[in-house]
Amino acid sequence: QTVQFNGLEYHFPNPEEAEKFAKKVAKELGGEVRVKDGRWQID
């Protein structure tokens, strides 16, 4: 599972970890999490 933001990609072994990370980062950055092409993106 991949999380993308600021032009970087973070890879996680399972979707739960990816989701948790994506939501944490979005909260800290005040961004929005969305899934695109099977990847988590933070904008």
Rank of each mutant, 00 (worst) to 15 (best):
G31K: 07
F12P: 00
W40T: 03
G30T: 04
N14Q: 04
P13Y: 07
D43W: 15
A18L: 02
K24R: 12
T2F: 09
G31P: 00
Q41R: 06
F21N: 01
E16P: 03
Q4L: 15
P15N: 08
N6I: 04
D43M: 14
Y10E: 02
K20F: 09
D43T: 15
E9K: 07
P15C: 13
G38E: 03
R34C: 12
D43G: 08
E19N: 04
G31T: 10
D43I: 15
E28H: 08
H11F: 13
T2W: 13
V33C: 14
R34K: 13
V3R: 00
T2E: 03
A22V: 07
A26T: 05
K27G: 08
W40Y: 07
L29P: 02
D43L: 15
W40H: 03
A26V: 06
E28V: 08
K24S: 09
Q1A: 13
V3M: 03
V35C: 14
V35T: 05
Q4Y: 15
V33D: 02
V35P: 04
L8H: 13
P15D: 07
N14G: 07
A26E: 04
R39I: 15
F12Q: 00
A22G: 01
F12E: 00
A22E: 01
K36C: 14
D37W: 01
F12S: 00
Q4R: 11
A26N: 03
F21P: 01
F21R: 00
A22D: 01
E9P: 02
R39S: 08
F12T: 00
E32S: 13
F12Y: 02
K23L: 12
K24N: 08
G38R: 02
V33A: 15
W40I: 06
A26Y: 04
V33Y: 08
K23V: 10
I42R: 00
E16T: 11
F21A: 02
G30A: 05
F12A: 01
V35L: 15
L29W: 12
Q41M: 14
K36L: 11
F21H: 02
V35F: 15
A22L: 05
A22C: 14
V3P: 00
V25K: 09
K36N: 10
F12H: 00
E28T: 07
G31Y: 13
G38D: 06
R39W: 07
F12I: 01
L29C: 15
Q1G: 11
N14A: 05
E19G: 04
V35I: 13
G31W: 12
N6G: 09
Q4T: 13
K24Y: 09
G30P: 03
R39L: 14
V35Y: 15
E17V: 06
V25L: 14
N14I: 04
E17P: 00
Y10C: 13
K24Q: 12
T2Q: 05
D37E: 06
H11R: 09
F5D: 01
N14V: 04
V25R: 04
P13K: 11
Q1E: 08
P13V: 09
V35G: 04
I42D: 02
K36F: 08
E17W: 05
A18Y: 02
A22M: 04
A26D: 02
H11Q: 07
V33I: 12
K20Y: 10
E17Y: 04
Y10R: 03
L29F: 14
K20Q: 12
V35D: 05
G38M: 02
V33E: 03
E17K: 05
N6S: 07
V3Y: 02
P13E: 12
N14C: 08
E32N: 10
E17D: 11
K24C: 15
I42V: 11
D43K: 09
A26P: 00
A18Q: 00
R34Q: 10
E17N: 03
L8M: 13
L29V: 14
F21I: 02
V35Q: 09
Q1N: 14
T2Y: 11
E16G: 08
D37A: 04
G31I: 12
E19A: 07
H11V: 10
K36M: 10
L29R: 05
H11I: 08
F5R: 00
R34H: 14
Q1S: 14
E9Y: 11
E17T: 08
K23S: 08
G7V: 01
K20S: 10
G30F: 05
K24T: 09
F12V: 00
E9C: 15
R34D: 06
R39V: 15
I42N: 02
Y10L: 08
N14P: 00
E28M: 09
W40D: 03
F5C: 07
Q41Y: 15
E9G: 03
Q41D: 07
K24M: 12
A22R: 03
N6E: 07
G38W: 01
G7I: 02
V35M: 14
P13I: 09
P13D: 13
K24D: 09
F21Y: 07
Q41S: 10
T2R: 06
K36D: 08
T2M: 08
N14Y: 05
G7S: 05
E17G: 04
V3N: 00
E28K: 09
W40V: 04
L8F: 12
F12C: 10
E9S: 10
V35W: 15
A18D: 00
G7N: 07
G31S: 08
N14M: 04
E17R: 04
R39P: 03
K20D: 10
V25Y: 06
E17M: 10
P13R: 10
A18P: 00
G7E: 05
F21K: 00
F5Q: 01
E19C: 11
A22I: 05
V33T: 06
Q41G: 05
N6D: 09
P15V: 11
V33P: 07
K27N: 10
R34V: 15
R34T: 14
D43S: 13
E28L: 11
G31Q: 08
H11P: 04
K36A: 09
T2K: 06
E19F: 08
E32P: 04
A18N: 00
Q41I: 15
E19M: 08
K27Y: 12
L29Y: 13
E16I: 10
V3S: 00
K23W: 12
Q4S: 13
G38H: 04
K20G: 06
A22F: 04
K24I: 07
T2H: 05
E28Q: 09
